[in-house]
Simulated scan of single mutants.
Amino acid sequence: MNEITGVDFSGIDLQDRSEPNHARPFDGILDVLGPMSFVEPVSATEAEQYRGRVPDGLLEFWHRHGRGAVLQGYAWLCDPALLQPIVEAVFADDPEFDAADFTCYLYEFDGRIEAWGRQNQHCQIDLTAFDYATVSVHGPGPLTHQRFGTVTPDYLVGNKLMSLARRLGQGMDEEYSDYHMFTSASNRLGRLEPGEIFGFFPSRQMGGEGYPEDMQKTRLVEHLLFHTQLDRATLRGWEPIPGGDGLSRPYPIRKLGPQPD
């Protein structure tokens, strides 16, 4: 039997509050996250195929560093083609959004996806959330940051990547935090391999309670495609929280997909 290799973050400052350089937001990301593993090189020719589909800074990052796992598998910079079947299933026959507009560039240990849209910009897809699958589209329109106001696409995505360590480190002592769920599953089951996530069995949308011990290794694409068959995802909007110092909260808008006449 192979020995299980868990995760160890003792050499990484998960509370690092670094902000990206505004002129070059992708510089220094790996100084915060640590080295990537399972690195797949990206040629200039391949990167150029995504010109205009994701921010230019991300293309440069791919070409310089490749794509792979950061934070020992907590998140994965991925080949967009891997998740295109998910995008097509999520936005199938929707009158407002076209799946071809969205390019997935990141997935997390539990199957959450970050995508970029040429028209609609920042998009988050969470098909395995409690109760129902959700999609948030933050565009079109100006891209904003709570502290810095309007920012560039490069800054928004660079900041998203740099903040992964901080997100992982939040609530380290809480039972259902990302840190607890990810480290618990990794130390019990071993580190994730490319194309794998930790999924809940049974699914949280089928009565599962979402306990750490319910997580099992599973194939990313197959697991998410299964969840697209449970129900159509709910499009969410975001509204300011009164007195929330610039924070927002989600609210449901409608189901994605074909709409009633």
Rank of each mutant, 00 (worst) to 15 (best):
M1S: 15
E3A: 15
T5Q: 10
F9L: 03
I12W: 11
L14F: 02
S18H: 04
E19K: 14
N21S: 14
N21A: 11
R24F: 05
F26W: 00
I29C: 04
I29A: 05
D31S: 15
D31K: 13
D31C: 10
V32G: 10
V32Q: 08
G34M: 10
P35R: 06
S37H: 12
S37Q: 14
F38S: 13
F38D: 15
S43W: 03
S43K: 01
A47S: 13
Y50D: 05
P55T: 00
D56G: 06
L59M: 02
L59N: 00
F61E: 00
H63Y: 00
H65S: 07
R67L: 09
R67H: 08
G68V: 08
G68P: 06
L71G: 09
A75E: 07
A75T: 04
C78M: 12
D79T: 11
D79N: 15
A81P: 07
Q84R: 13
V90N: 07
F91H: 07
A92S: 06
A92M: 01
E96T: 13
F97V: 09
A99I: 10
A99L: 09
A100C: 05
Y105N: 05
Y107F: 13
F109T: 04
F109Q: 04
D110C: 08
R112H: 09
R112D: 12
A115N: 09
H122G: 02
I125K: 07
T128K: 11
F130P: 09
Y132R: 13
T134Y: 07
V135Y: 04
S136G: 11
V137H: 02
H138E: 14
G139E: 12
P142Y: 00
T144E: 14
T144Q: 10
H145I: 00
F148Y: 11
V151R: 01
T152F: 03
L156R: 15
V157H: 13
N159P: 02
K160S: 12
L164H: 08
L168Y: 14
Q170E: 15
G171W: 02
D173V: 12
D173W: 08
Y176P: 01
S177I: 06
Y179Q: 07
N187L: 12
N187S: 12
R188S: 14
L189P: 15
G190I: 15
L192H: 03
P194G: 05
G195Q: 03
I197V: 11
G210R: 14
D214V: 07
Q216E: 15
L220E: 09
V221C: 05
V221A: 04
H223L: 02
L224C: 13
L225P: 09
R232C: 05
A233L: 07
T234C: 11
G237H: 06
W238Y: 12
P240A: 14
G243M: 01
G244P: 00
D245L: 01
G246N: 01
G246E: 00
L247C: 01
P252W: 09
I253M: 09
P258S: 15
D261P: 11
